[in-house]
Simulated assay, not measured.
Amino acid sequence: MLTGWEDIRTEVLRRISGREWLPGASIPTEEQLAETFGVARATVNRALRELAAEGVLERRRKAGTRVALHPVRKATLDIPVTRLEIEGRGQRYGYRLLLEAEDEPPPAIASRLGLAPGVRLLHLVCLHLADGRPALIEDRWLNPAVLPQKPDFHRQSANEWLLAHVPYTTGDIGFSAANATAEEARLLDVPQGAALFVLDRTTWEGDRPVTCVRLAHAPGYRMQTLI
């Protein structure tokens, strides 16, 4: 009986190694696999994401998932749960929701998400803390159409809630250094112009945009990944 994402991963690898799914061939959709295995779609999504990160599968928005023609080792870059990341460093985690409003996103955000002008999204701004000190500003635009229920973002960050409840199939991510604006400096309690590590990420579920988020980390943040 298959229950966890590790079980699904093992079964998918068995089908590939057994030549049931040939190199370059499309595999069934997440919905079809979830029904076949009798598990939640999010469980299938996690297994396929892991195999894509390992280079076994190739995932493309609007093109589905295929068995890689030439599997390669890729860097692994999971979306972390900020709370677990902070607690993993031995620090006490804190969270504050600063803004929750439905609004029309700026043109640059709408363009990244492939949305027509006038579409309204949920705008969330929150502050993550480590040992009582500001550590990260999370500025997020979220497509309410992907929410299976109305979350209480005062109790739990969108970062943690989405990773637990909303699957994604693909996305893009960018890294940059930026000088803290006056507002960012106030929220992070750093001098204006201080160097911040900034991460911009957009995720999709098939053809539907899920979220676009800007994460501004306080000075001293260190990111790690696997190769």
Rank of each mutant, 00 (worst) to 15 (best):
T82G: 09
L84F: 15
V213M: 14
Q32D: 10
T169C: 02
R61F: 05
G38V: 10
T3H: 10
Q156A: 10
V125T: 11
W5M: 04
E31H: 09
P105E: 01
P105N: 08
V67E: 00
T10N: 13
P106V: 07
A164F: 12
A110Y: 01
Q91V: 08
S111W: 13
Y93V: 02
L147F: 08
G24H: 07
P191W: 04
G220Q: 04
G193N: 03
E54P: 03
A110H: 10
R73G: 12
A194L: 06
V44A: 01
L121Y: 01
E102V: 13
E30D: 14
T29I: 08
L196I: 03
E138D: 10
T10P: 04
A216V: 13
V67Y: 00
T169M: 04
Q91R: 12
L129S: 06
I8A: 03
I27C: 03
D152M: 07
E205T: 13
G94W: 02
L57H: 00
Y168H: 05
I8C: 02
G206T: 12
F197I: 08
T203R: 05
D200R: 13
A177C: 10
V190T: 11
D189F: 11
T181F: 13
V190L: 11
G4A: 14
L124P: 01
L162M: 15
L215A: 09
L199D: 02
Q192K: 08
G114T: 11
R14A: 12
L33Y: 03
A25K: 07
